[in-house]
C-alpha cells in the first residue's frame, strides 16, 4: 500500500499534521499539494515549516512563485497558480532544488505545471469535507517517498 487518508478537523490540527510530516523529513522530499482555494495548502505548509524549525512566517508565494526559508532543512515553497498551465518551473530556473539534499520542496497548484514533474514525490490531495474539516489523501510515488509513507503510517498508527 502506498496511500494514507487522514482527517483534520481544524486549521490547528492541519498545522500539527504538517509538523508531523516535517519530523519525518530527511531532505530531498517533494510534496505536491492538490486542493482548491482555501483547502488549507498554505496552512499545511506553515505547519511543515514550523516542524522544520522555521520561525519566519510562511506567506503565499503566488506573486514571487518561489520562497526559500532556512531551517533544520531548507524549505523551498513553490506556487504554480499563476503559470496557468502555460509555463513550467524548469523554464524559470526554479526546479533546481527539487529533491536536493538538505532541502524539502512544497509545490502548490502542481496541476498548473505544464510538464517536467519529478518521478519520486508525495502527492497530497486535500478535500474540503465541511467548512472546518479536511481529508488529506497522501499517495507516494517512487521508492523514496514510499519509504517516507511507511514511517508516516507508523507514527500515525495506521496501516499504509
Amino acid at each position: 500500500m502506498d496511500s494514507i487518508e487522514w482527517r483534520s478537523d481544524s486549521p490547528e490540527s492541519t498545522r500539527q499534521f504538517g509538523a508531523t510530516l516535517a519530523s519525518i523529513c530527511e531532505g530531498g522530499e517533494i510534496f505536491f499539494l492538490n486542493g482548491d482555494l482555501g483547502a488549507g495548502k498554505t496552512c499545511l505548509t506553515q505547519g511543515l515549516a514550523k516542524g522544520l524549525g522555521i520561525d519566519t512566517p510562511v506567506t503565499s508565494p503566488t506573486f514571487v512563485l518561489h520562497c526559500q526559508y532556512p531551517g533544520r532543512l531548507e524549505l523551498n515553497h513553490y506556487d504554480a497558480y499563476r503559470l496557468d498551465g502555460s509555463g513550467n518551473l524548469a523554464g524559470l530556473g526554479l526546479d533546481d532544488l527539487f529533491g536536493a539534499r538538505g532541502s524539502v520542496a512544497v509545490v502548490e497548484w502542481p496541476e498548473m505545471l505544464a510538464a517536467d514533474v519529478p518521478s519520486d514525490y508525495m502527492e497530497v490531495e486535500i478535500r474540503v469535507d465541511s467548512p472546518e474539516s479536511r481529508i488529506f489523501c497522501l499517495k507516494a510515488h517512487g521508492v523514496g517517498h514510499r519509504r517516507f509513507m511507511s514511517r508516516l503510517a507508523e507514527i500515525l498508527g495506521v496501516a499504509a
Binding site: F63, L65, Y81, R82, L83, D84, S86, G87, G91, L92
Partner: peptide
C-alpha cells in the same frame, strides 16, 4: 486573458 501575471510572458 490569463487572469494574472504569467511570469514567462512577463520576462
Amino acid at each position: 486573458k490569463f487572469g494574472g501575471v504569467v511570469p514567462e510572458v512577463a520576462c
